[in-house]
Design a protein around this nucleic acid. Structure first.
Length: 552
RNA sequence: UGGGCUAUAGCCAAGUGGUAAGGCAACGGAUUUUGAUUCCGUCAUUCGCAGGUUCGAACCCUGCUAGCCCAGCCA
């Protein structure tokens, strides 16, 4: 079922060799923003791997920086994880462990492995050296254990201002791995924490906190993304020097990238804050709330991520692959219905004026259990503007003067007359129908190449359709040679197209998040934000594939 | 130019010394009341490049090359 990857291989071996006798993983988001599909990969890997080996997974909020975090985000993250289909064995907060972390820092000081530094931020940076040159020791590096203990205690008591002192691990200022050049492990921040309020004014840094959190929770395999690879030696150093009983192992995998998709948290935040998109749940951004609003299903996302695999590489998966799994998931579950996005009126001149009838239609030809419905049909209908061409190219088998096509679930019609306005735009078609060709009658007299969808003009419900395209196209981004390229300069002006059309009358009870396939258009769902009973709004989730190309 | 990591088809990715899985995309063809779906078929004599070890190498060794990550009191 699940495919082979290097993480499973490692864990399997750990279990077989007896290095581990159980598997505990964790998904550790910082509650400083909304989850996106990149986080979904992490969730799926962490929970998935634990499931495979009968282990367990903790949801842990890595809330060590009160300046950026908020309860709003913890609530949203919990909702998104559940929506994706996962449930955690334990819900934890890094802030639950602040006291323990403090004690471990004290232990480090006592061992002479940490010191309080008075250098300011700029000085610390200057002393750190560069990628190619070693750093040099801080003048405060050799303070006595007693002095350090005293200072660190006073830091905790709030005697010092933000930025005036930090606690640093004492390792090696000339290490080729910059993370070993006496990393800062505690900073002073007089600010209110969403969880611990004002009880702390010093907060541990990620590099110090994360390994301790994992060890405290008996996490066996700490799975994170590859940008943390250089941190691994430090992670191990912290676990060992802090004398943690439990020894978690960090393993890194490559981030998920998708073509034509803005994935960085920074950029997403920018899009939301500058109002370029309609909030964190805008259907054009890959946040889980955005994908949910657009109509993507958790199953499709899971399947996509699984098929995409786990490796250390950092390529970009084709967005077509995501779309494929969305169609795949909706195929059997979404009822078929007809919707006209860009209406063109047809008058069926030989259909009696005040007559009307109900035609039977299957709700999903690929899933008979979904039953049938009745659709009204009468003299005036709407079809798609694209389904008519006055002067068509070869191999166009939709409607054109003199051509006959099938109306889905109804009759054959033939185009006789084209009505235009003063500017020469086609505004109406006059057609005739052949009663003999009624759908389901078994008529085989002649064949027709095209089948069009339609709605009955009299009973149709006006509806709004929102069609999405990528916000930023990789190709356009790549064409920008400028030094300070800004992705905001390349926002696709067509990322959202809104059109007004019609849907079948029996769609009147559709509720937000209900998903349908509009025949020949694609999968759509009812928007949660703008749809009303009076004016339904449908988001296009994904179009249908099409081999039809209108050129030649 | 210090350190870490990666390199298998257009894209993602299995593969762990015995002769290149799978998915996406693409392209043929059949079926079709969605130009959809479904079905059937095609798509790496070669694994970044060059050497070496071996009866045998994508897998081991050496040397190159390219890409990604690291110099927050962010995570």
């Amino acid at each position: 079922m699940e495919q082979s990857n290097f993480i499973r291989t490692i864990i399997k071996e750990d279990l077989e060799t007896g290095k581990r006798d159980k598997v505990i993983t964790r998904f550790p988001p910082e509650p400083n923003g909304y989850l996106h599909i990149g986080h979904a990969k992490s969730i799926i890997i962490n929970f998935g791997v634990a499931d495979d080996f009968n282990g367990q997974t903790h949801l842990r909020f890595d809330d060590t920086n009160p300046l950026k975090e908020d309860q709003e985000y913890v609530d949203a993250i919990k909702e998104d994880v559940k929506w994706l289909g996962y449930d955690w064995e334990e819900l934890r907060y890094a802030s639950d462990y602040f006291e323990e972390m403090y004690n471990r820092a004290v232990l480090l000081i006592k061992k002479g492995k940490a010191y309080v530094d008075d250098l300011n931020q700029e000085e610390i940076r200057a002393y750190r050296g560069t990628l190619t040159e070693p750093g040099k020791d801080s003048p405060y590096r050799d303070r006595s254990v007693e002095e350090n203990l005293n200072l660190f205690d006073r830091m905790r008591k709030g005697e010092f201002e933000n930025g005036s002192k930090v606690l640093r691990a004492k390792i090696d200022m000339s290490s080729p791995n910059l993370n070993f050049r006496d990393p800062v492990i505690y900073r002073i921040s007089h600010s209110t924490h969403h969880n611990t309020g004002d009880s702390w004014c010093i907060y541990p840094m990620y590099a110090f906190a994360h390994p301790l959190e994992d060890a405290i929770e008996n996490v066996t395999h700490s799975l994170c993304t590859t940008e943390f690879e250089d941190q691994r030696p430090l992670y191990n150093w912290i676990v060992q020097e802090c004398e943690m009983e439990s020894q978690p192992q960090q393993i890194e995998f490559g981030r998920l990238n998708i073509t034509n998709t803005v994935m960085s948290k920074r950029k997403l935040k920018q899009l939301v804050e500058e109002g370029i998109v309609d909030g964190w749940d805008d259907p054009r951004i890959p946040t889980l709330s955005g994908l949910r609003r657009k109509g993507y299903t958790p199953g499709a996302i899971r399947e996509f991520v699984q098929e995409t695999g786990v490796s250390k590489g950092n390529g970009a998966v084709d967005e077509a692959m995501l779309e494929h799994y969305v169609r795949e998931d909706l195929k059997l579950t979404a009822p078929r219905t007809m919707g006209i996005l860009r209406p063109l009126k047809i008058v069926i001149t030989n259909y009696p004026e005040d007559q009307s009838e109900l035609l039977e239609a299957e709700n999903n030809p690929e899933n008979e259990e979904m039953g049938t419905r009745k659709i009204p049909f009468s003299r005036e209908i709407y079809v798609e503007q694209d389904d008519f061409m006055e002067d068509p190219p070869k191999k166009y088998f939709r409607l054109f003067p003199g051509n006959e096509v099938r109306l889905k679930h109804a009759y054959f019609i033939k185009c006789n007359e084209v009505i235009k306005d003063d500017e020469g735009n086609v505004v109406e078609l006059h057609c005739t129908y052949d009663p003999e060709t009624k759908s389901g009658s078994g008529f085989t007299g002649r064949k027709v190449k095209g089948t069009l969808h339609w709605v009955d003009a009299k009973s149709a419900i006006p509806a709004e359709f929102r069609l999405y395209e990528p916000l930023v196209l990789d190709e356009q981004m790549a064409s920008d040679e400028s030094e300070d390229k800004n992705f905001l300069d390349h926002i696709n002006p067509n990322s959202l197209e809104i059109v007004q059309g019609f849907i079948e009358p029996n769609m009147k009870d559709a509720k937000p998040q209900d998903k349908f396939q509009f025949f020949r258009h694609g999968y759509f769902n009812v928007d949660t934000k703008y749809s009303t009973a009076e004016k339904p709004v449908y988001n296009r989730i994904v179009s249908l594939k099409s081999s039809f190309k209108i050129n030649k």
